[in-house]
Write a protein that binds this DNA or RNA. Structure first.
Length: 193
DNA sequence: ATACCGATTAACT
DNA sequence: GTTAATCGGTATA
């Protein structure tokens, strides 16, 4: 059910990004449980990836969590506004991470709508909006993904490889040749029953 | 101490 | 399609 170190601490972050599709991300924050099925991810391949915060072995107070053992959260602020949620992978010392870009709402949909407070706009599509819907903030940087605050579990959803699409990552044009790598994975919400 | 910029979003034209 | 919003991280001094 709940994903564990065996899942997170593997070496292939691109494979993990693909396998996180269809898993359920759950938070229990502010006394409310909210969750959604992950349907878009991006892999960030550590020191050799120009798009990664840890490219070249860079280590700062912000990205320190990327160097922790796989299975916890790396949350940081982008554009001064948006809290972006990443899953740390690989063993301690190897700074791999997977950015969660979109979920399909499951539990606590009313709560998520209230938190978003922007009717007519997607409630959980986009890395900044899903964190708002789930109430994930930079204060959750470093928390375990085994709960009790944030959890990722296998909801038993089978995704045929045919439904999974891949392509270049979003907003990383500055990364030169690495901007073209097919490290983004997603599937269309309609293909989920 | 100061300046520049970003793994984005929403509200515009 | 364009652009303002908004502030921590990082580099430079």
């Amino acid at each position: 059910m709940m994903l564990n170190g065996e899942f997170y601490q593997r070496d292939d972050v691109v494979l993990i990004a693909r396998e996180l599709l269809g898993k359920e991300l759950v938070t229990r924050i502010g006394g409310r449980i909210t969750s959604g099925i992950i349907n878009e991810t991006e892999a960030y391949n550590g020191v050799v990836d120009r798009a990664s915060h840890a490219f070249g072995g860079k280590r700062t107070p912000r990205n320190e969590q990327m160097y922790a053992a796989g299975g916890n959260a790396y949350v940081y602020l982008c554009y001064g506004i948006h809290h972006l949620f990443n899953v740390v992978t690989n063993v301690a010392g190897i700074p791999h991470a997977v950015l969660i870009r979109s979920i399909i709402p499951q539990q606590g949909i009313d709560t998520m709508r209230t938190r978003r407070a922007t009717p007519g706009k997607p409630t959980t599509t986009g890395p900044g909006t899903l964190t708002q819907a789930l109430a994930i903030r930079t204060t959750h940087n470093g928390v375990s993904l085994g709960g009790p605050t944030i959890m990722i579990r296998d909801a038993g959803i089978a995704l045929p490889p045919k439904r999974i699409m891949s392509g270049p990552r979003i907003g990383v044009d500055y990364a030169g040749p690495d901007a073209l790598l097919p490290y983004r994975f997603h599937f269309h919400p309609d293909t989920l029953s």
